[in-house]
Amino acid sequence: MLKIKNLHASVEDKTIIKGLDLNIKPGEVHAIMGPNGAGKSTLGYVLSGREGYEVSEGSVEFKGQDLLEMDIEERAREGLFLAFQYPVEIPGVSNMEFMKESVNAMRKKQGLEPLTAAEFLKKAKEACKQVNLPLDFLKRGVNEGFSGGEKKRNEIMQMILLEPKLCILDESDSGLDIDALQVVANGVNSQRSPERSFIVVTHYQRLLDYIKPDFVHILADGKIVKSGDASLALEVEKAGYAWLGDKSKEAGA
């Protein structure tokens, strides 16, 4: 599904990702944990193609294609989805219009006819229900005036509608209370399948109680310094990230 080799990336001439390797097979859930500033969010932005994030070295292969050669929208249409940590508010564009255009952009790529307004509405209603968002959120401006939790749920709602191949969840747990966390986790779990892979980026182990990862990677100073199974997350929970100070130097040596 995704093969990242020796990835180096920078923002405003500051190198953030410094030689990252990651291999993800269909159906797998990988958690990426790490301290603030390790490059967790940067990784998501680089993979999605955000402007200003420069790749200086390395390669990323997505479903056998060179991901880095694709435009932002091409990556999305190939099935890459990034659930944002801080989704932007867009007054003047309704959630409904936004999602309908997105879904139809995906369908066009697959050679399918666009959905009619009625067909789309039916799907959107189901997706809203799954993440516990009232239907009037469809009519509101994209994320306009949504609470933090509503924004996160709106992201998962989009994920459900767009049926991506690879989902990157960027701190989808941050700022959520336990109920909202469960809603988000349930939404994600409902989408798990042998064909769909996930990268769950999180600072805390908490989310991983609900979304069971197959692998856990610790990212520090732009590299993966340790990988393991779900038990690694528990280790981090106990020990914190302080030990990484030495560990990352070791890995770099």
């Binding site: 435009d71 932002i72 867009i90 952009a105 995906m106 767009l162």
Partner: peptide
């Protein structure tokens, strides 16, 4: 960027 990241052409 947000709209593009959902597959909508620029």
């Amino acid at each position: 960027y947000y709209l593009q990241s959902r597959g909508i052409p620029r």
